[in-house]
Design a protein around this nucleic acid. Sequence first.
DNA 1: TGAGCATACTCAACAATCTGACTAGTCACA
DNA 2: TGTGACTAGTCAGATTGTTGAGTATGCTCA
Lengths: 189, 189
Amino acid sequence: MALRHAVLAALLDEELSGYQLAKAFSVGVANFWHALPQQLYAELARLERDGLIAGREVVQDTRPNKRLFTVTDAGLAELDAFAAAATKPSFLRDDLAVKVQAADHIDSAVLIGQLAERAEIARAKADLFENLLRTMRGAAEEDDFLRHGTRIGPYLTCLRGLAFERGNHDWCLRTIGILKAREAARVRP
Amino acid sequence: MALRHAVLAALLDEELSGYQLAKAFSVGVANFWHALPQQLYAELARLERDGLIAGREVVQDTRPNKRLFTVTDAGLAELDAFAAAATKPSFLRDDLAVKVQAADHIDSAVLIGQLAERAEIARAKADLFENLLRTMRGAAEEDDFLRHGTRIGPYLTCLRGLAFERGNHDWCLRTIGILKAREAARVRP
DNA sequence: TGAGCATACTCAACAATCTGACTAGTCACA
DNA sequence: TGTGACTAGTCAGATTGTTGAGTATGCTCA
């Protein structure tokens, strides 16, 4: 049930609509969780029903009306309880890793293509995260911001996302290099 | 449907029983995918039914009999097709990240405890992976093994797992440091 | 003026994953 | 002699997550 808490955590810093939340959880800013819009709307409905968030209707002229949600005191208490409970371990689950595991039995060229694609995606995400971090810390130095800033939670998870994507990127490039070297060695051993 | 292919990839290098597979996918050696025993037994049954793997009964004296599985030619073809198909993006989905996202609203001490626990787990997994890598490359230097060794797939995914766990570890320790510094600053600003 | 994109959501069906319980024999240790 | 851990699995049920399709309006750009 951690999607529940991920939504609560996302709503802590700003009042959001389901639609805005959905963008944050899908497009790439989802540096700490990922979910599809359908899941989020369903979860918001449950959270409101259980009194952990409160919605208010915002009437708009040129666009469809929307509902903005904020975390209630009960929601905060729920987050506290979640934080205190045992943390589930996190596991890798990545199609690309499965393909690399089978590297010795599948076509190198295909694999190199997939790795290059992923490397590019990882680079783009890393760039995005770097920009986000810059925006969050504003004019302050990072150390200073982290020591004295308010709302460092999103910054910290973004740091993790950045490291993750850089790791991804580096691994892809290194793996490509190794596969190419082996191809070359096979031709001219 | 990537569990299917993860199982095929795992069976490429050695004939395994469901039980052995389950250990590989759960305990921690699961550096490229994670799954519970129940899922694996079910998937093995489907794979055998579809002719992608073949099982053979091994009668044992002192233990229950077991069935060992190998990938068939049809299985190899399936893996080829999988490798050539588009790779799904991989997303972070981690309880601990959710807790850190809410860092500004929950008790620091609790969070530091959780981070310390995770740091220790990550360190242990990293150690495990380092040992695995040493075992796989044997007497050879890493570069040499990667250039000329057979079966580098598992080595490459293990490298990714290692980097992931080290990233985890570093992030936990850094985050703990930041949270402690903030606590200190709050007491004596 | 019409094609495509953005806002703001909803519904249904399906696939994947997880929780928890259960069988049944072996082995080591106290 | 019993307690717990290891081997080798199976079954049922609930929860989560994914796929795909729809509704309705307004804005921009060619």
